[in-house]
Design a protein around this nucleic acid. Sequence first.
DNA 1: GTCTATAATGGGATAGAC
DNA 2: GTCTATCCCATTATAGAC
Lengths: 163, 163
Amino acid sequence: MRGIADSVGIKGASLYNHFGSKEEILYAIALTMTRVPVEEHLVVLDEPGSPAERLTRLIGVHLRHLAVHRVEHLVSLRELAALTPEHRAVVVDYRKYYQRRVRDVVAAGVRAGEFHVADPLRASVAALDLMNGVSWWLRDDHDVDGLVDTYIDYIVSGILRHG
Amino acid sequence: MRGIADSVGIKGASLYNHFGSKEEILYAIALTMTRVPVEEHLVVLDEPGSPAERLTRLIGVHLRHLAVHRVEHLVSLRELAALTPEHRAVVVDYRKYYQRRVRDVVAAGVRAGEFHVADPLRASVAALDLMNGVSWWLRDDHDVDGLVDTYIDYIVSGILRHG
DNA sequence: GTCTATAATGGGATAGAC
DNA sequence: GTCTATCCCATTATAGAC
């Protein structure tokens, strides 16, 4: 709490004018980091285009969001266990839904003959692990555009064998 | 500490007959989880065979080790920040060395015309992220043999474009 | 809304009996 | 080598002045 307060330029005790508890702060971070992707990223999966085109767009928005909110992403993962069971369930549900939608577009690509994997769920888990792994080592001086292009290639052309 | 003691069937205070501090326990876990892969896995990179063959064997031993020591793997990642600077440096150095050796075999594969990636370092980071991501969701009832085959395919044929 | 001061809590660590 | 009892201290949280 003191660290958070320091970074905002106030004392630890003053945080309690804005949040009821530490858990509430962690929940706010974790909730934002899972709800925003569901509400704002997944729309690209409903736009026109082939599964490969739609997944490609999702990889872009996913990685760019992660690049901007790297620390919050790590916090929401690390502190998931510190949430109340109720709050944790909300976050986990958002994550599961996101995962499911990625799996669905992979499965659609397989049905359309664009992708060639035996197990769409496993491939979508791998794709998300690959993307989320970026948050462990990304630095501000990295070229995000190049990163996005490379990871689209790794996932779409690589893991999913498109084209 | 009390949780660890419970799982061993003794009281928390009795742990101090075996370890001097909590940090010492965490260091023992983290050190084992980084030194063992360096000392025991990397030998497969020195055995005969093409880069693709040697990397394929490394993926196998890496994932099987991770499947057996899933919890320790997560602990050593999560508690890295809890180590003393000296201990953390040792662990980080082992990890960097492992990473470097994987990059080297990827680079060798590129030079040999087996792999087709623009940046061997980035590809090796992706490959390791992909493998290590498994520890977040692997369960005891998963088929590790099938997992290994799939991930070899994702990495070697997928990301690295072999064959 | 922020501050200082302080309470309350939880968990790492120690002492000493057995 | 394990136990109970306790200490210690960092951290979360509250009280009340300004």
